[in-house]
Simulated scan of single mutants.
Amino acid sequence: MAGHSKWNNIKRRKGAQDAKKGKLFMKHAREIFMAAREGGGDPEMNANLRLAVDKAKSNNMPNDNIDRAIKKATGDLDGVNYEEFTYEGYGPGGVAVMVKVLTDNKNRTAAEVRHAFNKNDGNLGENGCVAFMFNRKGYLVINRTSVEIDEEELLLEVIEAGGEELESSEDQFEIFTAPEDFSEVKSVLEENEYTFETAEVTMFPTTHTHVGEEAASKMLTLIDMLEDNDDVQEVYHNLDADEEVLEKLS
């Protein structure tokens, strides 16, 4: 996971400045819709739906919005049908990029994603061209600045709950799990009265591509363009750059 914390912290700060609640809630609604359509509308019986709902609530999405998305998926309300796709390619400087989308118009979304890549010196590739560079992991972040936490005790609790790894920094603890163990680890730690700043199953690069300031700047612009697209749910990448460069660009 080396290099993840540095980029993740900068991305989080930038995201907090740029976030638009309407777009964010729309993305959550689509994710909830897909999870409920595929696995049923009961979060207790549908782990993917439970994760999607927890993620939405962590961003203060109203319960009414969450319930409406579930009802649309289960046929209680009229709604559009979404399809899920993942686009893969390379950004400026050869940075590997994966783009997860939920769309009701594949042709429109494909054209917009391709335009974002082309405009920023990147190019889309075939399915599988970069997927092998990423691993899917459960990811939990505990803020350590607001409450005193014994690191050794937390490590033991993470191991006992089935977690794979604990990383600590001055501001936070990062916990990594196998995807199938994420819900159990999260539940056990919640029972032990830990609260999470981030809790999700996401993709992590196995290697990183180091680039200079010019390529890093274009890569950040590419990420912004993709994340501003209503159809884009997640953008994964293996960008690495000197911390001073990322601080300057953020």
Rank of each mutant, 00 (worst) to 15 (best):
A19C: 04
A69T: 06
G75F: 06
W7Q: 06
S146P: 01
Y82A: 14
A111M: 03
G41Q: 11
V97M: 14
M225G: 13
P179D: 04
F204P: 01
T74F: 09
N9V: 05
S217L: 10
G138A: 04
A199I: 01
A215G: 06
G125M: 12
L102C: 11
S169L: 01
M133N: 15
R144Y: 03
G163H: 01
R30N: 02
F25Q: 01
N127F: 11
E152W: 07
R108Y: 00
F134Q: 08
E44W: 05
P92I: 14
L249C: 09
V235T: 10
A131T: 13
E112V: 00
T109R: 04
L102H: 11
R30F: 00
E191D: 10
I159H: 07
K218Y: 10
N143S: 07
F25V: 00
E84Q: 15
V130D: 04
E31A: 15
E227F: 12
E247T: 09
M26I: 00
T109Y: 05
A241L: 07
K14A: 07
N8T: 06
K218A: 11
L239Q: 05
D104Y: 07
S183M: 04
L222F: 08
G122Q: 11
A96E: 09
E38M: 09
G162A: 03
G162C: 04
G128D: 10
E243S: 14
I66D: 02
E84W: 12
S187D: 10
E213V: 08
T103G: 09
A29G: 05
R144I: 05
R108I: 00
G3Q: 04
L220M: 12
G40I: 09
A110G: 05
T86H: 12
M26E: 00
V95W: 03
E200A: 11
F134H: 11
E88T: 13
R50P: 06
S217I: 08
C129A: 14
G89C: 15
D240Q: 12
A35K: 03
K100E: 14
G39V: 13
A96H: 12
E190K: 08
E153R: 06
Y90I: 14
V188L: 14
F117P: 10
N127V: 15
M133E: 15
L249F: 09
E200K: 07
